[in-house]
């Protein structure tokens, strides 16, 4: 029998719900989307909208994009929305134009700064705004106006809801040049995602435990959502670790992931309402 005493704990840590560009898993469809996003940034577009349901990898996309492009272009990632308008302008002024501004900075003042620095900028800076649905409508309108100056390029991510669609339609319809939708993984993609993720962390034995049958079961529970899958598998390996400690692992076997444990994890994470 393979000694998997530490593998379950390692595997558990692989599925921690963190946004780390190093954890980015290269999937065919996702790679295509990512490449198109990269290409869009090179184009003279005012605004790029990245949208999709929660847990489809939008934040990971922005993180990956930031990591990949930060060496070549001026790119700034704001994972947490800056809800205060003055603070938002001040942060942009400092990051893009290296201007520290004391006191309140309003939109008019910031526009003056943008216009004054316009000629000095050789390469349009890119601002990545995650969770843009949290910004107020007024601020979003001002972001739209800023993008119109073509001095700053915005890539924003939105959750795909009715409200977000409304924002997209009302405020950005004419300005958005590129919109990319991220979707949940298919069954095949989910299997590749899980196995690649585990193999990246050298958890080959646990990666081999994910048969098509068990992946289908996971897909049924998570609908291919990456965040839900991560949560579920984190719990799965936590249960495995506990059974291992209690010496009850033999009853489940190590050939493939136990359906019972998957269901137990789904109950714990709320994917199954029991």
């Amino acid at each position: 029998m393979i000694n998997m005493s530490s593998i379950y704990t390692q595997s558990k840590n692989v599925f921690l719900d963190t946004v780390n560009a190093q954890d980015y898993v290269q999937l065919d469809r996702v790679s295509t989307i990512y490449q198109s996003l990269k290409d869009s940034i090179q184009k003279p577009l005012k605004m790029i909208l990245l949208y999709g349901k929660p847990g489809t990898g939008k934040s990971m996309f922005l993180k990956k994009l930031y990591n990949d492009l930060s060496q070549n272009i001026t790119i700034h990632l704001y994972e947490t929305p800056i809800l205060d308008e003055s603070e938002f302008y001040k942060t942009l002024a400092q990051d893009i134009f290296q201007l520290k501004y004391n006191g309140t900075l309003n939109f008019t003042q910031f526009m003056k700064i943008v216009n004054s620095k316009k000629e000095q900028i050789t390469q349009t800076p890119v601002v990545l705004l995650d969770e843009a649905q949290l910004y107020s409508e007024a601020l979003m309108e001002k972001i739209r106006l800023l993008s119109d100056t073509r001095t700053i390029k915005f890539v924003i991510t939105l959750h795909k809801t009715e409200k977000e669609d409304l924002i997209a339609k009302e405020h950005f319809q004419t300005r958005i040049w590129e919109s990319i939708e991220l979707e949940n993984a298919s069954k095949t993609e989910l299997k590749i995602y899980i196995q690649k993720k585990l193999m990246k962390a050298n958890c080959f034995d646990t990666a081999n435990m994910f048969t098509t049958k068990i992946v289908n079961k996971i897909y049924k529970l998570t609908n291919g959502n990456y965040r839900d899958t991560n949560k579920l598998l984190h719990t799965v390996f936590e249960i495995y670790s506990i059974y291992e400690q209690d010496g009850k692992l033999a009853s489940f076997g190590t050939v493939q992931i136990s359906t019972k444990i998957v269901e137990m994890a789904a109950i714990h994470t709320g994917l199954i309402n029991a």
Binding site: T235, I239, I242, K260, E263, M264, I267, I272, A274
Partner: peptide, 18 residues
């Protein structure tokens, strides 16, 4: 730390329900 016993009981109930 998960309460495995409780989780197993919930799982059993779930299976019966299913």
């Amino acid at each position: 730390m998960l309460n495995i016993i409780d989780l197993e009981n919930r799982w059993k109930r779930y299976k019966i329900k299913s």
